[in-house]
Design a protein around this nucleic acid. Structure first.
Length: 418
RNA sequence: GUGGAUGUAGCUCAGUUGGUUAGAGCACUUGGUUGUGGCCCAAGAGGCCGUGGGUUCGAGUCCCAUCAUCCACCCCA
């Protein structure tokens, strides 16, 4: 029986990794423009951290977490909670009143895998802690948009407000009354939701439910004054930054901690998965997790494999071969191989990317290897040249050859272009 | 957790109504060039046909089971 990777866990192989690196480096570059600092967080946390923040009744906590029950620890299903944990634990709020942070890494959820959805997946996650200034909401969304634009991925930004502990319960009651009137027409899931989280019914993909819910009361019409004002400023700021967006009064985020501004970056090119990224405000969460009182926060996460999938679709045919080696050293015969062995090491010390074959293959075979590896030069060391202390340096792009001293310095400067 | 589809070479896939030794393309190795890559040509290597059972003189092909993968539902990144 062959041992294979676990279902929902994927190897990222050479050839695919370039896109990952591009996404990550672009993110670092864009995020730094917005004064965000990177940090790295552990993969394992106490189970309680996620249960308390994400919400006991959410799907993630109820059935999707990889938990070591005997140890009371869980592999992170998302990172906002632990970002806040670190913020509190290290007193980051004391070092700087407003923290802009981001992190990149793997998350784990035990769901059935499908296109764009794995059990180990990767996210970029950006959070701003310590302010509820609506300009920050706009800035954060603008940052996400800028990253996607820079990557050449076109998505739409959808936004909603979920209100706050003051106005949401009121709306919830109003919505519940609305749903109860047409309970008979709703799907089983929505019937169940109406008791646990009626807002979720707004999000149902079942066509009949959509129909039923189409003229449901909008939370945007039921915001309290504070939330309404806040949302209004967010909108005008986005306009000012010329970040396009649309309102989606049906958008409900799946995590309990969200309030006020929520948003998603949406695509139609990922099968059943429409969200490339999503996030929102969570003004009560820091305090709930034991941090300083009234510390608001907002952030978003983007799914790396979803970004990579979109890039792969776009660039299917491009496939440009890039140079991977500066020089391939081909030794002919045991004596030459012996010389090449340390010569190669010296060249690498000089910073060159060097390939070598230790299997005693023919020159033709070694030339093929060099070509496949994308070497720009090949150094051929045979018995004749060796006797003179020289080798033949072949330029693989213009086929020119010349004798050259077997001196790492000389070869190094020649190959790297003076 | 639920539904549908698919499992044949490293990869992408053929394989007639069950019938001898299971094929192709790409990739790989070697040779055509005694020490020179790409293109071309030739040869070679590579398969318990997912696994287990059943029907049959005979199963890659039919039946059952099982496992795996993919897609979708749920939900989300």
């Amino acid at each position: 029986m062959k041992i294979t990777a676990l279902n929902g866990f994927k190897d990222i192989l050479p050839g695919d990794i370039e896109l990952w690196q591009r996404v990550e480096s672009t993110a670092r570059e864009i995020f730094s423009r917005f004064q965000f600092s990177e940090l790295r967080l552990p993969i394992l946390e106490k189970t309680e951290l996620f249960a308390r923040s994400i919400g006991e009744a959410t799907d993630i906590v109820e059935k999707e977490m990889y938990t070591f029950v005997d140890k009371g620890v869980t592999m992170r299903p998302e990172t906002t909670a632990q970002m806040i944990r670190a913020y509190i634990e290290h007193g980051l709020y004391a070092q700087r009143p407003i923290q802009r942070l981001f992190t990149i890494g793997p998350m784990f959820r035990h769901e059935r895998p499908q296109l764009g959805r794995l059990r180990q997946f990767h996210q970029l996650d950006a959070e701003v802690l310590g302010t509820d200034n609506p300009r920050i909401d706009a800035e954060v969304m603008a940052m996400g948009s800028m990253l996607l634009e820079r990557l050449g991925i076109s998505v739409s930004l959808e936004m909603n407000s979920l209100g706050c502990p003051e106005c949401r319960p009121v709306f919830r009651q109003r919505l519940l009354a609305f749903l109860e009137e047409r309970m008979d027409h709703l799907c089983d899931d929505c019937k169940r939701r109406s008791t646990t989280n009626p807002l979720r019914a707004l999000d149902c993909k079942n066509p009949t439910c959509r129909e039923q819910v189409a003229d449901a009361p909008s939370i945007l019409d039921n915001l309290c004054e504070g939330c309404a004002d806040h949302f209004q400023v967010v909108r005008s700021c986005l306009d000012k930054l010329k970040v396009p967006y649309s309102l989606n009064k049906f958008m409900v985020r799946g995590l309990d901690y969200y309030c006020r501004t929520t948003f998603e970056f949406i695509t139609g090119d990922l099968g059943a998965q429409s969200a490339v990224g999503g996030g929102g405000r969570y003004d009560g969460l820091v305090e709930k997790l034991g941090g300083p009182k009234k510390t608001p926060g907002i952030g978003f996460a983007m799914g790396l494999e979803r970004l990579v999938l979109l890039l792969q679709q776009q660039e299917k045919e491009q496939e440009k071969r890039q140079e991977e080696l500066d020089i391939f050293v081909a030794g002919l015969g045991p004596v030459a191989s012996e010389v090449c062995f340390d010569l190669v090491h010296e060249l690498r010390k000089q910073g060159l990317r060097v390939g070598i074959d230790h299997e005693g293959k023919s020159l033709k075979s070694q030339m093929k290897q060099a070509d496949k590896a994308g070497a720009t030069h090949v150094l051929i060391v045979g018995e004749d040249e060796l006797a003179r202390g020289e080798g033949v340096l072949r330029n693989m792009t213009n086929q020119e050859q010349q004798d050259i001293a077997l001196d790492p310095q000389v070869i190094g400067t020649k190959v790297s272009g003076r």
